[in-house]
Amino acid sequence: MKRVTIHRHEESYEVRVSYFFYFDHDASRRAVSGRDTPEQALEKAKALARAERDKPQG
């Protein structure tokens, strides 16, 4: 899930994009909800962080 917010500063606007990687510890609930394990969610979060870090600045 992605959330985008705009924050006004005195002479600029800041756009923040937040991504949420949901997980569940309980295997039976994961089967119903389709959520990842905590480890899977962490790996997805790390992959996105690396991709954002490595993007060319433009």
Results as ranks from 00 to 15, higher is better:
Gln57Arg: 07
Asp36Lys: 05
Ser12Pro: 00
Arg3Pro: 00
Ile6Glu: 11
Arg29Ser: 06
Leu42Tyr: 10
Val4Gln: 14
Leu48Ala: 05
Asp24Tyr: 00
Arg30Gly: 03
Phe20Glu: 08
Gln40Arg: 13
Met1Arg: 15
Ser28Pro: 00
Arg50Phe: 03
Gly34Thr: 00
Phe21Gln: 00
Phe21Cys: 03
His7Cys: 07
Gly58Trp: 02
Tyr13Lys: 14
Ala51Val: 01
Arg3Asn: 10
Glu14Lys: 08
Gly58Arg: 02
Ala41Cys: 12
Glu52Gln: 14
Ser18Phe: 04
Tyr19Asp: 13
Thr37Pro: 00
Asp36Phe: 04
Thr5Cys: 13
His9Ala: 05
Asp26Gln: 10
Ala41Val: 04
Tyr22Thr: 10
Leu42Gly: 08
Val32Arg: 12
Arg3Ser: 10
His9Glu: 04
Glu43His: 12
Glu39Ile: 02
Glu39Leu: 08
Lys2Met: 11
Met1Lys: 15
Asp24Met: 03
Phe20Tyr: 08
Asp54Ser: 11
Ala41Phe: 00
Ala31Ile: 04
Gln57Val: 08
Thr5Ser: 15
Arg3Trp: 01
Val17Asn: 14
Phe20Gly: 09
Glu39Cys: 11
Met1Tyr: 07
Phe23Cys: 01
Thr5Pro: 04
Gly58His: 00
Arg29Thr: 09
Val17Phe: 04
Gln40Leu: 12
Asp26Pro: 03
Asp24Asn: 15
Thr37Leu: 03
Arg16Leu: 13
Ser28Lys: 11
Ala27Gly: 08
Lys55Ser: 04
Lys44Asp: 01
Arg3Ala: 06
Glu43Phe: 04
Arg35Thr: 05
Lys44Ile: 03
Gln40Gly: 13
Thr37Lys: 00
Arg53Trp: 07
Asp54Arg: 01
His7Arg: 07
Met1Val: 09
Lys46Asn: 09
Ile6Lys: 14
